[in-house]
Structures are given as structure tokens and as C-alpha cells.
Design a protein around this nucleic acid. Structure first.
Lengths: 203, 203
DNA sequence: CGCATAGTTGACTACGCTCAACCCTGGTGG
DNA sequence: CCACCAGGGTTGAGCGTAGTCAACTATGCG
């Protein structure tokens, strides 16, 4: 039973959900709206962000396929953040009542939901950990290490650097300089949108 | 059914748990240890932190009564962080197998666990949001606003300022200066360990 | 062929960190 | 009872690094 694959769900649940396509740059939902659905991403990429008092925005998560979005509706009535598609995307919409009801009958589904939540917690923890690294170039390096697949050392950056910079909590200029420096130090090699990590012993 | 109150749990679960006292400054568990239990805090305060490569530590959460600790064991086999008691504390230890098994039979318990996870996600999001506020004094102000009870504007800081500074990602010196400045600007008033927020229209 | 946007590079500024000295409190032992 | 010490908190001076503003290039799109 997997929330990403409706065909693995019990009929009762499957009949209540909807697959939804979202064009790049359009909103899935907006901060403050009435919240009746939670979503699982099946394709594309969504940016979750919140508006601060001063009008600036903070990105909480770049949600990828397999990630859940707005699970908080299970205990809140309004969306606490805004979700915007970075590229053409697809999600499955689950009415929150259906999920709450299924705890009773479908423990596997419950377990999967909990896994999704735990993964999100780990992701947030990692991003918080990053912010405690002061030096921009070291923060970038740590970020790249995490992005690299377990055995490979090649990272494909398939989204604008300025978005990456925002994730890291630095400006695009600083990111650019940090990458230059890392390349000059031999820690990484750049080729267009590909970055390879060189196994330098220390930072 | 509430994980904080064993008497509300089914016998089957209640018999498998243990209430545990922890003295101030001692460890509940350590990063890398085999993880068989998750914990709910009933009294006191625990600091969750991770060690970075360079030996520094990052605090992820100050866990209060009602918070869950190490729920990640539900999908991992080792503790990814270290938990240390800041003051004398008490926790309930739940064997993770028991929790995994109860999804089947006790939906209320499941729902409560999910609430705990969601609350943790919100807390992490808030802390990440804070880090995007550059100016130290504004970051501190936002932090105080969040700490203030909904209707009251008085905050009791019952732990060392240097710990608060670490939470905020600034040094104690900077925190001290930020508080001085906020007081001078009239945004707050300080009396020993009490801080009151003055309803100044803008920052 | 322009226009818009991303990325890069440079010069300057500003804010927080570091190091250091100092005050204050609470605890300990002579 | 007081001297001493340790730790937290505050304040000061100087430095370093990331932000800001600006100019310039490159790329993609109408």
C-alpha cells in the first residue's frame, strides 16, 4: 500500500482521490486557504514557501516525487504555506477526512504516511544543520555532498542556481563565488549543469 | 488515547513501556547507538543535537513535555542524534516494534503519533524561517513573539541565554546586544529573566 | 533583432564573529 | 564570615565575510 500508487490502495480510498496536473509556476494552494486536501507528488517539483511579515518569502522544502505536501492539514484547517510548481507537475489529492478515517482500517497506509512525515523531518533537520555552517563555500560543499547519490559523485543541478542559493540561505552572488572557490580549491569540478565532487580529504 | 498518559493506552501497549528518569546533563541516547525505543517526554526538557564533521554541535530541537523524541527509529536502526537532558526530566520509552504493531489495532494512538510528528515538522519549519531573518535583533524579536503565549506578552526565559543564542544561530554576545537594542528601541522590556513584548506597530 | 532572465565579477558596506576585559552572582572552603 | 573561584552575562575594539548595488556577459524566446 503506497500513497504514490493509487492502484495499491483499497477501493474505498481510491474512489475519493483525484490526480491533478499543475503547470509550471502555478499555485497548488495558497497560504491561508481552507485546507481540505493533502497531496502526494507523483511528477515534477513543488516549492513550499511561507510569506514573512515584511513580504519576503522563505522556502521550506523543494518537494520531489514521493514527498507529501501539506500533511499538516491533518491537524489544521488552513494551509500554513504556499505551494507553487517549479516545473510541470502532477499530484494526487487526498481528502483529509479519508486519510483520518483510514487509520482505522489500513495500517499499511498509515505506516507509509508516517514514513513520509519522518522523511520530511529528516530533510528539515538537514537544512537546519546546513544553516549552522557559517562559511558559504563549506555550506555549499556539504549541500552538494548530500545531493550526491550514495556511490556516485556527480550531481546534476537541474534548477536555477538562484533557487539553490535561496535553499542554502545565501545570495546567488555568494553561491557563484563559493562555487568558483571550491573549483579553484579542487574540491569540485564544473561542467555546465554537472558538478563532480573530488574526494579531497578535508574541507 | 494519548502517548503521554499510559493509563489511556490499551493493556497490550502499556505493559511494554517503561517510565524513565534522567538527571540533568545526562544522555538519554547517543548518536549512532542501536535504536530500539522512541520516547515521549513527560517532564523536563531535552536537547536534541547532532555532531558535525568538525566536532561542532547543532541543536535541532528543545523537546518539551508532550514532544516525541527519536520517532525516526520507526524507519531507521540507529539514533541519528544525541539527546541530553537540560534539567531533571522524565520520559516514557516505547519499544518501536510495539508502536509499529499498534497501527493495526489502535487508530487513535496512530493519530496521536501523527500529531506529534506534525508538530515537530512545524517547529522545524519555524526555526528554519527564523534563520532567514538576517538582522539579529529582528530574529530575536520574532523568536520572542513565537514564545509568548497567545494572549500574554510576558516571556519567562528559564534557561541560559547562551543556549537561546545557540538555538537562534547567533553568539551570546550578539544576543546580548540584540536584546539591549530591542529594549532601547522600546520593543521589549526586561526584568531579570522576564521579558515583555511591547506592541510596537512595526519592527 | 531586441528583450528578459540567469549567471558572473567587481567595489563597497555592514553586520556578526572573535577575542578580551570586566561585572555580577552563587557556591565552596578556609 | 569572608576570600576565592567559576560561569554567565555584558561591553568594547577590530576583523572578516556575506550582502548590496552595479555593470557586464550569455542564453533563450518572442
Amino acid at each position: 500500500m503506497n500513497l504514490m500508487y493509487p492502484e495499491t490502495l483499497p477501493d474505498e480510498v481510491r474512489q475519493s482521490i483525484a490526480v491533478q496536473s499543475i503547470e509550471a509556476k502555478t499555485l497548488l494552494f495558497q497560504q491561508g486557504e481552507q485546507a481540505d486536501y493533502l497531496y502526494i507528488i507523483t511528477q515534477g517539483r513543488l516549492r513550499l514557501m511561507r510569506y514573512l511579515d515584511d513580504g519576503k518569502t522563505v522556502t521550506f522544502q523543494i518537494a520531489q516525487p514521493g514527498d507529501g505536501v501539506a500533511e499538516v492539514v491533518l491537524m489544521a484547517d488552513f494551509y500554513p504555506c504556499t505551494a507553487v510548481a517549479e516545473v510541470d507537475s502532477q499530484v494526487i489529492a487526498y481528502p483529509k477526512q479519508v486519510i483520518l478515517n483510514s487509520f482505522r482500517n489500513y495500517p499499511d497506509l498509515t505506516e507509509h504516511l508516517i514514513h513520509i512525515l519522518l522523511r520530511k523531518i529528516e530533510s528539515l533537520k538537514f537544512r537546519l544543520e546546513l544553516r549552522d555552517i557559517r562559511a558559504a563555500h563549506e555550506r555549499v560543499l556539504q549541500y552538494l555532498r548530500q545531493l550526491a547519490a550514495p556511490n556516485s559523485s556527480v550531481i546534476t543541478v537541474d534548477r536555477p542556481f538562484k533557487d539553490v542559493a535561496a535553499d542554502l540561505g545565501i545570495t546567488p552572488e555568494t553561491l557563484s563565488r563559493a562555487l568558483s572557490r571550491l573549483e579553484q580549491d579542487g574540491a569540485i569540478t564544473r561542467m555546465q549543469q554537472y558538478i563532480t565532487l573530488n574526494d579531497s580529504p578535508a574541507a
